[in-house]
Design a protein around this nucleic acid. Structure first.
Length: 739
RNA sequence: GGACGAUUAGCUCAGCGGUAGAGCGCUGCAUUCACAUUGCAGAUGUCGGGGGUUCAAAUCCCUCAUCGUCCACCA
C-alpha cells in the first residue's frame, strides 16, 4: 500500500469499475419478470438537478440517498437509484435570456421554434457537467436509466395526466388576476411570489363626497365601484346610491356597495374597487358583477386607449390621457399625483405607510396582478386524498414534524395556475379553433399530445395551439411515476413503484413533495413514495446561508479534489440532524480527511504485518466469529463484543435514517476503540508472531469497513481489496455484516 | 396575525426521561513505532430565564425572553 491515500486515482478507478460492471443497476430477473426470489425492491428517484447548472453543496446532500442506496444494495435488495436532469423551464430560460442580453439580443427576436432549439442546444452543452459532478461525488446512480424531463416518454406521460385531469374536470380555464412579472413576461403560481416589506406613500384623495386612501392612484381610472363595510355607520345613508366623482379625467358615476370584508379602520373606511388590478377587488367584482377593465398592459405600461377613443371629451382631459398613455406605472403615478395636487384633489399623503408587496422571486420586479385566462388545477379533490394518505401513514416523514407542515400546506393550497408564458418547457396540448370560436371563447380541444386534425364542431382545420407551457413543477410533480413508466426496462414501474424514499431539502416541500403526492395518488392510485426524508440547508462555518454575493460559497468539487470525496461525505453526515440546517466548514472536511488518513494507516499496519508473516512462511487464516473462543484473551473478547454492538447499532441506525449516529459510532469505534486501544495493546503480540491477534484484527477491520462503506465508499473498497486474504468480490455488493 | 425551528464547552453542532457529548480550537507532554493528516494527558458547561410533572428532566408540560425561517389579499 502507498504511504499516502491517493484519493483522486482511487476514486476514479473504483467508480469506473463499479459502473462498468453494472453494480449500480438493480438485480432484476428478466426471464421471470419478477424480482429475484427473496429480494425486496428499494427505490429512490434522484431529485433531478437543473441540467444547465453546476452542482452546489446542497446537491452534495444527495449523499444521504447514496448511503441508503448502498446500504440496501449491500443487504441484497433490488436497489434502484434513478438519475435524471431537469429542464428547469423558467429558471433556464431566465439564464439563457441573460446570455442573450450579453449579445444584445432578446428572446423576442426569435421565433418560438428557433428559440426553443437554441435553449435546447445551450442546455445539452452544459448537461454533461452536472452529470460528471454527480459521479465525482461518488453517487451510485443507475446511469443506464438516466432520463431528462423533456424526454418524449416523459412528455407523453405529462400530456396523459393533463388530459385525464381535463376529462375529470380537474383542470379548467380560469380568468383570474395572475401574478404577472412584466419583466420576465410570464405569470406565476402563488408559491413563486416573493413578498417584501416596503414603504410607499399612501395617498388620501378626494373622491366625490368622500376621501379615499390608496397607494395606487394610477389604477383609479378603472374603479368600478366604492365599497364600505355594511356596519359602518358613517356611510349608512350612502349605500346603494350613485355619485358623481370628479377625477383627473372628468366626472364618472359610481355606486356604493357594502361588503363585510372592508375594514372600517383602514384609511377612511371607504375603498375603491378596481377588479382588474387587485386580487381582492377582483373577488369583490365577481361577487357584485362588476366589469373587469384593465388599465395596465403586459409590459407594465399604462393603457389609456379606451379613453382616447372617446369623443366630446374636454381637451384638458384628453391631453392628460395622452400624457399618461404608454408610461410605466411609476412614472404615470408621479404625473398623476402632480395633477391631483393641481386640481386640489389630494388631501394628504402618509409617507410612512409600510405594506407588503408582491415581487418576482427571480428578477425582483414588482409583480402586477393582471387579468388573464390560464389553466388551473382544481386542488381540493387532489389535496384531500393526499392529506388522507399522510394521516393514514401511507407516507411517513423524517423528521416527523414535517408531517404537520405538509398537511398545513395541502390544506391551504389555492387552485394551481400551471400556465407559463415561456417557450422552454412542455407546451400545453390544447388547441383553439380559429374557424368557429369567438375571440374570448374558452372552447378548447385538449389531447394527449397529438395535434388534432380538425375542429370537432365545425370541422375546420385552422387550429391554434396554446402558446403557453406547463409550470415546471407540473411535470416534475409526476417524476416518480413518469420516470419509471418511461424506462426502457418495461417492468420498472411494476417492480419499483411506489418508491421507497423521497429525499430532498425541506425548502421544496410545498413546491415539489406535496405536488408529487397529489399527482402521484391521482394518476397511479398509489402514493409515489412511502417515506419522505427532508434535509436542511447547507450553511457556512458560521451558520450563514451560502450565497455568491456573500462570497461564502464552498464548492463541493473543490473540496473533493482537496480532501477526497469520502471526507466530504463524512463531513456532511457526521453530527447533522435530519431537517436541521447544517454548518459546513473546511475545517470539518479537513478533520474527516484526517479520519481517512487514519483508516488508510490502520489498513497499512495490518497489511504490513500480513506481509511480514507471509515472509516468515505463514499466512493468517480468516477469523471465524462463530468459532471457538477459548483461546482468546479478555481484550480480544471485549473488542469483538463491542464490534457486535457496533454492527447491531449501525444496522439499526441505517434502518431508522439515523445516519449521523451511524457515522459517529463508526468514527469512535474505529479510531478510539480499535486503533488507539486494541491495536496498541496488540502490537507486542504481533511482534511475537501471534497469528490469532492479527486475524482478529483483520476480521474486525474488514467488518468496520463494510459498515462504513455506504458513507465512505472509495477508501473502504480500496482497503478491503488490499487486505483480501482470499479473492474478495467488490464491497459494493457484498453482504452487509450480520451478527 | 399565524405556524415551525433554534437557544448545550471558545466556535459549529449532536443528544431529547436515567450520573453532561462530538468535531474543530485551546493547554501540557511524547515521538525516527501504520499514521504529526499522530499519540497520551488535560482544562472548559447552573444544557436561555422562571414554574410544573416525575424517584429521576438538557430531554415531557406551561410560561417568558431573544434569534431565525416560512406562511397570510388589508386597499
Amino acid at each position: 500500500m502507498d504511504k499516502v491515500y491517493k484519493h483522486q486515482d482511487i476514486e476514479k478507478k473504483w467508480y469506473a469499475l463499479w459502473e462498468k460492471e453494472g453494480y449500480f443497476a438493480p438485480k432484476v430477473d428478466p426471464n421471470k419478470k419478477t424480482l429475484p426470489a427473496g429480494r425486496q425492491a428499494f427505490t429512490v428517484i434522484l431529485p433531478p438537478p437543473n441540467a444547465n447548472a453546476d452542482l452546489h453543496m446542497g446537491h452534495a446532500m444527495y449523499v444521504i440517498e447514496d448511503v441508503m442506496i448502498r446500504y440496501h444494495r449491500m443487504k441484497g435488495d433490488s436497489t434502484l437509484w434513478l438519475p435524471g436532469a431537469d429542464h428547469a423551464g423558467f429558471e433556464t430560460q431566465y439564464v439563457f435570456e441573460k446570455h442573450l442580453l450579453k449579445e444584445g439580443k432578446s428572446r423576442f427576436d426569435y421565433p418560438r421554434d428557433t428559440l426553443y432549439q437554441m435553449i435546447w442546444d445551450f442546455v445539452q452543452k452544459n448537461r454533461g457537467n452536472m452529470e460528471h459532478q454527480l459521479r465525482a461525488l461518488g453517487f451510485s446512480l443507475d446511469w443506464s436509466r438516466n432520463i431528462f424531463t423533456l424526454d418524449p416518454k416523459i412528455v407523453s406521460t405529462v400530456y396523459q395526466t393533463f388530459k385525464k385531469l381535463y376529462d375529470d374536470g380537474l383542470v379548467y380555464r380560469g380568468l383570474r388576476l395572475v401574478n404577472y412579472c412584466t419583466k420576465c413576461g410570464t405569470g406565476f403560481s402563488d408559491l413563486e411570489v416573493n413578498y417584501i416589506e416596503r414603504k410607499d406613500p399612501l395617498y388620501f384623495m378626494k373622491y366625490g363626497p368622500f376621501t379615499i386612501a390608496t397607494v395606487r392612484p394610477e389604477t383609479k381610472f378603472r374603479d368600478t365601484a366604492l365599497a364600505v363595510n355594511p356596519k359602518d355607520k358613517r356611510y349608512k345613508d350612502y349605500l346603494g346610491k350613485t355619485f358623481d366623482i370628479q377625477g383627473l379625467l372628468g366626472t364618472v358615476k359610481m355606486a356604493i356597495i357594502a361588503d363585510e370584508e372592508v375594514d372600517p379602520k383602514f384609511g377612511t373606511g371607504i375603498m375603491k374597487v378596481t377588479p382588474a388590478h387587485d386580487p381582492h377587488d377582483f373577488e369583490l367584482g365577481k361577487k357584485y358583477n362588476l366589469p373587469v377593465t384593465p388599465i395596465i398592459d403586459f409590459k407594465g405600461r399604462m393603457d389609456f386607449s379606451w379613453f382616447m377613443k372617446k369623443k366630446n371629451v374636454e381637451q384638458k382631459y384628453m391631453d392628460r390621457a395622452i400624457k399618461y398613455h404608454g408610461k410605466k406605472v411609476i412614472e404615470a403615478r408621479t404625473l398623476m399625483v402632480e395633477d391631483l395636487k393641481a386640481d386640489g384633489l389630494l388631501v394628504k399623503v402618509d409617507e410612512n405607510y409600510t405594506h407588503r408587496i408582491a415581487t418576482c422571486y427571480k428578477s425582483s420586479t414588482v409583480l402586477e396582478p393582471l387579468p388573464m385566462s390560464q389553466w388551473y388545477i382544481k386542488i381540493k379533490p387532489l389535496s384531500q386524498k393526499a392529506i388522507l394518505a399522510i394521516k393514514k401513514k401511507r407516507i411517513t416523514f423524517v423528521p416527523k414534524r414535517f408531517e404537520k407542515i405538509a398537511i398545513q400546506w395541502l390544506t391551504n393550497f389555492h387552485d394551481w395556475n400551471i400556465s407559463r408564458q415561456i417557450v422552454w418547457g412542455i407546451r400545453i396540448p390544447a388547441w383553439k379553433c380559429l374557424g368557429c370560436s369567438k375571440e374570448n371563447s374558452e372552447e378548447w380541444i385538449v389531447t394527449k399530445g397529438e395535434s388534432p386534425q380538425e375542429c370537432p364542431k365545425c370541422h375546420g382545420s385552422d387550429l391554434l395551439q396554446d402558446t403557453d407551457t406547463f409550470d415546471t413543477w407540473f411535470s416534475s410533480g409526476q417524476w416518480p411515476f413518469a420516470t419509471l413508466k418511461a424506462s426502457h426496462f418495461k417492468d420498472d414501474f411494476k417492480y419499483f413503484y411506489p418508491t421507497s424514499v423521497m429525499e430532498t431539502g425541506y425548502d421544496i416541500l410545498p413546491w415539489w413533495v406535496c405536488r408529487m403526492v397529489m399527482l402521484g395518488i391521482y394518476t397511479t392510485g398509489d402514493v409515489p413514495f412511502k417515506t419522505v426524508y427532508l434535509h436542511g440547508l447547507v450553511r457556512d462555518a458560521k451558520g450563514v446561508k451560502m450565497s455568491k454575493s456573500k462570497g461564502n460559497v464552498v464548492n463541493p468539487l473543490k473540496m473533493v479534489d482537496l480532501y477526497s470525496v469520502d471526507a466530504l461525505r463524512m463531513a456532511l453526515i457526521f453530527g447533522t440532524a435530519p431537517g436541521n440546517d447544517l454548518s459546513l466548514s473546511e475545517d470539518k472536511i479537513r478533520g474527516m480527511r484526517n479520519f481517512t488518513n487514519k483508516l488508510w494507516n490502520i489498513g497499512r499496519f495490518i497489511k504490513l504485518n500480513m506481509e511480514v508473516f507471509a515472509q516468515k512462511g505463514f499466512q493468517i487464516a480468516e477469523f471465524s466469529p462463530t468459532g471457538d473462543r477459548k483461546n482468546l484473551s479478555l481484550k480480544d473478547k471485549r473488542i469483538l463484543t463491542q464490534l457486535g454492538m457496533l454492527t447491531r447499532s449501525v444496522t439499526k441506525n441505517m434502518e431508522e435514517y439515523q445516519f449521523a449516529k451511524a457515522s459517529e459510532r463508526l468514527y469512535e469505534y474505529i479510531w478510539h476503540q480499535f486503533a488507539d486501544k486494541y491495536i496498541e495493546v496488540s502490537k507486542e503480540k504481533i511482534q511475537k508472531d501471534d497469528k490469532t491477534v492479527l486475524s482478529i484484527m483483520h476480521y474486525i477491520y474488514v467488518t468496520c469497513l463494510k459498515l462504513l462503506h455506504p458513507i465512505m465508499p472509495f477508501i473502504t473498497e480500496e482497503i478491503v481489496q488490499q487486505l483480501a486474504i482470499n479473492k474478495a468480490g467488490p464491497l459494493i455488493h457484498s453482504s452487509w455484516p450480520v451478527l
